[in-house]
Simulated scan of single mutants.
Amino acid sequence: MAVYRIAIGSPREASNPAAIKAAVAEFFSMLIFVFAGQGSGMAYSKLTGNGPATPDGLVLASLSHAFGLFVAVSVGANISGGHVNPAVTFGAFIGGNITLLKSILYWIAQLLGSVVACFLLNYTTGGMETTGFSLSSGVSVWNALVFEIVMTFGLVYTVYATAVDPKRGNVGVVAPLAIGLVVGANILVGGAFDGASMNPAVSFGPALVSWSWTHHWVYWFGPFIGSAAAAILYDNIFIGDDGHEPLASSDF
Rank of each mutant, 00 (worst) to 15 (best):
W217F: 15
T48L: 14
I239A: 08
F221K: 04
S227G: 13
A2K: 02
S45Q: 14
L208F: 13
N97F: 08
Y4R: 15
G195P: 01
F27R: 05
S29N: 10
G172Y: 10
I237F: 11
F70T: 06
G9P: 05
K46G: 13
I232P: 00
G51V: 05
A22C: 09
A231E: 01
G82M: 04
A53F: 11
A144R: 00
S197I: 04
V159P: 00
F153H: 04
L60V: 13
T48S: 14
N97Y: 09
H65Y: 10
V73C: 07
M30L: 15
V24G: 02
T125S: 15
G169V: 07
P86I: 07
I237E: 12
M1P: 10
N199W: 03
S80W: 00
I225P: 01
V116W: 07
N170V: 12
V156H: 01
I8N: 07
L145V: 11
L63W: 07
L105D: 00
D194V: 06
G226D: 04
S103Q: 06
C118S: 12
I98S: 03
W107H: 08
N97G: 13
G190L: 03
D251W: 04
M30C: 15
N50W: 07
H215N: 15
T99K: 09
E148M: 13
G57V: 08
L60R: 10
V173Y: 11
E13K: 09
N143D: 15
G226V: 03
T54D: 11
Y219R: 07
A2V: 08
V183T: 05
P55D: 06
P206Y: 09
S29R: 04
P206F: 08
F35P: 00
A228D: 02
A7F: 05
F70H: 02
S103V: 02
F35V: 11
N16V: 03
G41Q: 05
G226W: 00
H215M: 07
G39K: 01
L121V: 08
T124W: 13
K21V: 06
S134K: 13
C118P: 00
W220K: 12
V116I: 12
A207G: 09
Y106A: 04
D165R: 06
P206R: 10
F153P: 00
Y106P: 00
Q110C: 11
I94L: 11
L69Q: 03
D194Q: 05
L121Y: 05
Y157Q: 06
H244T: 12
